[in-house]
Amino acid sequence: MKHWKLLTNPLNDENPITVQVLGICSVLAVTVQMKPAIVMAASVIVVTACANLIVSLLRTTIPPRIRIIIQLVVIAFLVILVDQVLKAYLYDVSKKLSVFVGLIITNCILMGRLEAFAMNNRPWESFLDGIGNGAGYGMILIVLSTIRELFGSGSLLGYQVIPEGFYKLGYVDNGMMILPPMALITVGIIIWVQRGYNRKLIEK
């Protein structure tokens, strides 16, 4: 079951966001509400898995000196596909994500995994590694957007969760949660909690 590890490792011990520090920018920008976060997570899983697969298939033919350009072209090609599909079927979400779909190209998860894994591993393993890392990224995205939408707007996926009565008693949505700085601080706290449980990740 060594393939199973490829899928589960990036969820905790080697999480792309909280351990490898890859792909932070989009995490902060798209997690104000859950819906764009879920769409973004799905897009990234698709792109990481396919890019890893394609580059792994090509790995013996890519000349090392120009590999960065080739990797970026593969990624950009996949991202354009995803962008066009989103524009066609989920136009309002694609508007909300704006430049951040384009920025999947420079999402360091992609380059990082291509360089570290797909360039020296077989296609099937690379594909699984792509899915695992995409999922690890998506997991943090969804946890973060749940916290931010619940406390920032009192709703989940656009449905009001916190009852009217609370507001009448003086409860107020935390406006700070909607602002990007709070996303950073929340990620900091998620890292704190994760390392509290998983003590081998603590930095010396």
């Binding site: 700085p181 900091g188 890292i191």
Partner: peptide, 22 residues
């Protein structure tokens, strides 16, 4: 606190700096 060392603290610091820059 140990689990906060390094990366966790860097995130929180950046958040505070961003609030200042707002």
């Amino acid at each position: 606190p140990e689990p906060l060392r390094g990366l966790g603290l860097a995130f929180i610091l950046t958040g505070l700096l961003a609030i200042a820059f707002m």
